Amino acid sequence: MPKSTRTRSTRRAGRGSTATGTIETIIRPSQSTPVKVLLAVWRWRWELFVLASIAYITIAHGTAITGYFRSNPLWLNALLIIVLCGWIVTDNPARRFVLNRFWCVITRHRLRACLVEMRTLNYSGNLPFIVACFSTKTGQIVWLWMRPGLSMEDLDNKAETIASACWARSAVIARSKRNAAVVRIEINRRDPLSKTHITSPLLNDTSDMPEAAVADDAVMAFLGPDTTGSAPDESTAQPPAKTGSANTTGETRTRTSKTKTTAAVSDSQTVILGANGEDVSDYV
Rank of each mutant, 00 (worst) to 15 (best):
S9W: 04
R15G: 01
S17N: 13
T25A: 06
P29H: 07
P34S: 10
K36D: 03
V37C: 00
R43F: 07
R45H: 13
F49G: 07
I59W: 08
I65Q: 09
G67D: 15
F69M: 09
W75T: 15
I82M: 10
I82N: 02
C85T: 13
A94D: 02
R96Y: 02
F97Q: 13
V98L: 11
F102D: 06
A113P: 00
N122Q: 10
Y123S: 14
Y123M: 10
G125D: 07
N126E: 15
P128N: 01
S135R: 06
V142F: 01
L144I: 05
L144C: 08
W145E: 09
S151V: 02
I162G: 10
W167N: 15
W167D: 14
W167L: 11
A168K: 08
S176M: 01
N179V: 04
V183M: 03
R184I: 11
N188F: 04
N188K: 01
R190A: 04
P192N: 08
L193C: 04
K195W: 03
H197G: 00
T199C: 06
S200T: 13
D205Q: 15
T206M: 03
T206C: 06
M209C: 08
E211A: 12
E211Y: 01
A213N: 06
A215N: 11
D216N: 15
D217A: 10
V219M: 05
M220G: 15
A221C: 06
G224I: 00
T228C: 01
P232H: 01
D233G: 11
T236I: 05
P240Y: 02
G250A: 04
K258T: 14
T261P: 01
A264T: 13
G274Y: 02
A275G: 05
E278D: 13
D279S: 13
D279R: 09
S281N: 08
S281W: 03
